[in-house]
């Protein structure tokens, strides 16, 4: 459905060219769920941004159902069916939540209420709220997810949807993402959460700007878990006194 071929990305940072992604090859099929995981700064959000057309790759191609969309901008890709829920959602002075949801879903109010309820926000309390700094981090994050659910694109990329969401709602969030997944949609979830990694068909590990491992949950999960645990144990041992009650 969506493929990234030999994608490289360089960005200019303070007059220096920095390599962010390097020879990334990924193929996301219809009907499947994927998780992108990997250390902070490894390039997961950058992969999503290249797919959405926000970052223009330095090399490589992006294909959507076989069509070369490398040269298409954000709006055109959105209209073809690619959607992205941002890791750090933008805030808008003055714009009500209702208007944002209506831009995503141009039909009845009823549906807007449904997507808000799905992610655990009471529509009566939130439809008229403005998307500015008066919303908490968790609230704005939920609304971002609701917006992508309202848009309901063929390819859905959720960037760390669990970030800032309380534990209780986390289960509900997983259910909503899982239940809204269809045979003809592709769901990509960027996440560090075990529960999310457990629910997908395939896990992609991104490290240092490239795909370092990919495969089924059963193949990949034990290895990620091991490497995560190792580094934690090491840290705990280094400062044994402070981290005496390290949960791992």
């Amino acid at each position: 459905m969506l493929s990234l071929e030999n994608i490289s990305l360089e960005l200019e940072v303070e007059e220096r060219i920095v390599s962010i992604l390097n020879d990334v090859n990924l193929n996301f099929e219809a009907g499947k769920m994927y998780a992108l995981t990997g250390p902070n700064g490894s390039g997961k959000s950058s992969v999503a941004r290249v797919a959405m057309g926000i970052y223009k790759q330095t090399g490589g191609r992006v294909l959507y159902n076989g069509e070369d969309i490398t040269e298409l901008g954000i709006s055109e890709r959105a209209r073809k069916g690619i959607g992205y829920a941002f890791q750090h959602p933008a805030r808008f002075k003055g714009m009500p939540v209702k208007d944002m949801l209506e831009l995503a879903f141009k039909h009845s109010d009823g549906y807007n209420c449904k997507v808000l309820r799905d992610i655990g926000l009471c529509p009566d309390d939130y439809l008229e709220r403005t998307l500015d700094n008066s919303l908490s981090g968790g609230e704005i994050k939920r609304i971002e997810i609701a917006t992508l659910l309202a848009l309901n694109p063929k390819v859905r990329i959720f960037d760390e949807p669990e970030a800032g969401i309380d534990l209780w709602s986390f289960e509900q969030l997983i259910d909503v993402i899982g239940n809204s997944h269809r045979k003809d949609t592709t769901t990509v979830v960027i996440s560090h959460q075990e529960k999310i990694l457990n629910m997908v068909d395939e896990i992609v590990l991104i490290e240092k700007g490239t795909v370092s491992m990919r495969g089924s949950r059963d193949e990949i999960w034990p290895q990620i878990k091991e490497s995560a645990e190792c580094s934690c144990r090491k840290n705990c041992r280094l400062e044994e006194d402070i981290y005496a009650d390290c949960p791992r």
Partner: peptide
């Protein structure tokens, strides 16, 4: 980032 968000909605 505001423009990008709305453009990503089409």
């Amino acid at each position: 980032e505001q423009l990008i968000k709305l453009m990503s909605l089409g």
